[in-house]
Design a protein around this nucleic acid. Structure first.
Lengths: 110, 110
DNA sequence: TTGCTATTTGGCAATATAGCCAAATAGCAA
DNA sequence: TTGCTATTTGGCTATATTGCCAAATAGCAA
């Protein structure tokens, strides 16, 4: 694997890694509808504010969201809306998983 | 966040997590072209065979690849080819990152 | 100023991940 | 059988991630 390709793969992996957390996926989904402040996202997720703030920082670092301070609140917006197109495909991966599991179950229970 | 949504987000995050590693992305990209045995992928990645085998196991567990033993080799295939459509979008995320960084650089250097 | 709200950051403990080596397993052929 | 190749699994250490609490920072209003 040459160095150029390595860099390429690392950059892409970094973006995926930033997305690969349930709370961060929820944030992305909600931001697809409209912008939200940290406090709103915190209510939706139901974790500590500091935890949510760190999740947002991960998404920001990855280039997935942008933030804007207004008053004493910070609003986050989706930067690249296409990220959610992923999910149609992931859906089919999950369906494949189910198929696999049920055929596995069949083998086990026979 | 209700329990149903939580499950939904966890399932999707799991798939993304499985993809979020440079070596595993390389595997997915290569399998898009054609199936490969573990030894071929090991050569491409340049890590220990056991490491590559574990990466493949992660991808299999996530429902992204399937394996087929032929002789003393195991061939892996992409199960859901659409996963690589992600990359067009990730590309734009990366471009957004670059823009951000260069404007940041501008601020710093002024 | 003081107090209140919103957010970020530091620090810590628990858990998960990555990658190597060594050993186990399986297929094939001499 | 024995030996060789291909692959997986166990075990280990190093590193990264997660999520909380506590503290710092910032804006706004009394």
């Amino acid at each position: 694997m040459d160095n150029k390709r390595k860099k390429y793969l690392e950059a892409r992996a970094k973006v995926l890694k930033a997305m690969a957390h349930p709370s961060r996926l929820l944030i992305l989904e909600e931001l697809e509808q409209t912008e939200h402040c940290v406090c709103e996202l915190t209510d939706m997720i139901g974790a500590d504010v500091s935890t949510v703030s760190k999740h947002l920082s991960v998404l920001k670092q990855a280039g997935l969201v942008i933030d804007e301070k207004r008053g004493n609140q910070v609003f986050y917006q989706l930067r690249v809306p296409c990220v959610l197109n992923f999910f149609g495909c992931i859906e089919s991966v999950l369906e494949a998983q189910v198929t696999e599991q049920s055929s596995l179950l069949k083998i086990v229970t026979v």
